[in-house]
Amino acid sequence: MCTMPLDRPSVPLVSIILIFFRIGLFSFGGGLSGWIYRDVVTLRGWMTDADFLSGLALSQILPGANVTNLAVYIGQRLRGPAGAICAVTALVAGPFFAVIGLLVAYDRLSTMPWIQDGMSGAAAAAIGLLLVVAIKGARSASSSLVPFITLAVTFTAVGIMQWPLVPVVLVLAPLSVLLAWRKAASNA
């Protein structure tokens, strides 16, 4: 059964917690799947390549942060519900305190004007990190017409027209999936 943990000695929950806590604390700026792969597949052999990669695809198409979804998936595969809860909680716990600590430090310092300038510069650089992801997505979407139009309509509605995001996605997602489904069926 797919819902059973993997057919090997079960992984201690403590190990899951320690590994995901460490990954969470070092996950600056995203791109964590490489770290998780190294810990879970390469170093410990807890999962096969195929298992990991299908989980990665899943965590990216589902709503939610990709990394937390991947943690839920791996925790579930290794130890069922308890594993999923341990993995995702450990992953988020470190960043939770780190981000609040940074904010408190920033609030104390923000009266100095050069701090304001510095934050504007850091924010602009952080947007560069987003642009990389957006460009990657746009490049793969423009391989054919339908995904390109979907991307353009989504961007125009939310980014230019400033329509509310939730209804836009609720209308576009079923349409886009339906079109992809028909295309897949006609190719099969």
Binding site: A57, Q60, I61, I127, L130, L131, V133, A134, K136, G137, A138, S140, A141, P147, F148, T150, L151, A152, V153, T154, F155, V158, G159, I160, L165, V169, L172, A173, S176, V177, L178, L179, A180, W181, K183, A184
Partner: peptide, 20 residues
């Protein structure tokens, strides 16, 4: 496959909108 290919461009469009 349909879920994956159908949702990907929406995700990319939303990220671009977030930048703007």
């Amino acid at each position: 496959t349909a879920l994956e290919t159908g949702l990907a461009p929406i995700g990319a469009g939303l990220i671009l909108a977030g930048v703007v």
